[in-house]
């Protein structure tokens, strides 16, 4: 099948076939990262701009490495150094970047929907690197890639997502992707952090982690955003860790070959007990290196495939 999109904005709008194509392409891209010369000329002459309105180290670095491995020219725009702090609007900034020759714009923005605005108004290809609490497609795609690599297939797997589902763009994108590829999706967390009516898209809700974890093949632990801990979604971090932190005895209830994943950075002793974090360490680092391959695939598909006509 062909990939006829100019943008990759979210997993909700991608079909199962498109997601599978991105994952297949990423497999080929992963090989490039194992070579002595980790670079291919596919995006030579293409200028990619990373436009980040939120602080990010790992996502931005991962995008930047992916761009460089494809030989793109890279332009970084981050909040503190840019004209954003001088009051320029998002659209004006992006139009300026386009005028400088950027033909792919990677955007992270605190407002949900910002990438769609750029996609509508600009000629460039837009890749969403996280918008508000809405979608984070590259993270979900790399999670799907990692699960598929370990388990061989996603269809039929029981996958549990734990934590702040309400504010998590990682959770949203993952849930869409997992459902489309035929997994059974469960979510667990305090009632205040689970979106209402999530059952309507065929997701099972649990408020008790022991019940939720029974028989699952994959657990995706979300990061508790420390910067948000003083808001009133749960009484205290200690209480959260006690009820929703993943510890050895709870994990024993899952399938024998359960895979524990975390988008990082981990708060040890909160989402994951330290021993589980150590055990899961290799998978979590796999996620990071797979992230580069998945992002290379996203660039390749929008820049060379995308029905631009």
């Amino acid at each position: 099948m062909d990939f006829n999109r100019r943008h990759i904005l979210g997993l909700e709008e991608l079909s199962a076939e498109e997601i599978t194509l991105i994952l297949d392409t990423a497999e080929s891209m992963k090989e490039v990262s194992k070579r002595d010369v980790k670079k291919v000329p596919a995006l030579r002459g293409v200028t990619v701009c990373n436009l980040f309105y939120e602080p990010s180290t790992r996502t931005r670095s991962s995008f930047e490495i992916a761009e460089k491995r494809l030989s793109a020219d890279v332009l970084n725009f981050t909040l503190s150094h840019s004209s954003v702090s001088k009051g320029e609007t998002l659209l004006d900034t992006a139009r300026n970047l386009e005028a400088m020759g950027a033909s792919v714009i990677v955007i992270r923005h605190p407002m949900s929907g910002a990438p769609w605005l750029l996609a509508k108004e600009l000629d460039s290809s837009i890749i969403n690197a996280g918008d508000g609490s809405h979608e984070h497609p590259s993270q979900a795609l790399l999670d799907l890639f990692t699960i598929r690599e370990i388990k061989g297939n996603i269809e039929g797997l029981k996958v549990l997502v734990v934590g702040d589902i309400l504010h998590s763009r990682v959770a949203r994108s993952n849930i869409w992707g997992l459902l489309k590829l035929g997994a059974e999706v469960r979510v667990a967390g305090p009632p205040t952090l689970i979106p209402s009516h999530i059952e309507n898209i065929n997701v099972k809700t649990y408020y008790n982690l022991e019940d939720a974890v029974k028989g699952v093949d994959v657990v995706i632990m979300l990061r508790i955003q420390m910067e948000r801990q003083d808001s009133e979604f749960f009484p205290s971090l200690r209480e959260y860790a006690r009820f929703y932190g993943l510890k050895r005895e709870k994990l024993k209830l899952a399938a024998k070959d359960v895979v524990v994943m975390h988008p990082g950075p981990i708060n040890r002793g909160i989402e994951l007990s330290s021993d589980i974090a150590d055990d899961a360490g290799s998978v979590i680092l796999d996620q990071v290196s797979n992230g580069i391959a998945v992002r290379m695939a996203m660039f390749y598909l929008v820049a060379s495939g995308g029905g631009n006509s």
């Binding site: 062909d2 990939f3 392409t25 080929s28 891209m29 490039v32 002459g45 293409v46 995308g306 006509s309």
Partner: peptide
Amino acid sequence: DITLYRDDLRRKTEWPKVKKT
């Protein structure tokens, strides 16, 4: 698989699927 080294990638005339080297 020479797809990533093609000289016509940017012409967008066809859509080459990348396979593994």
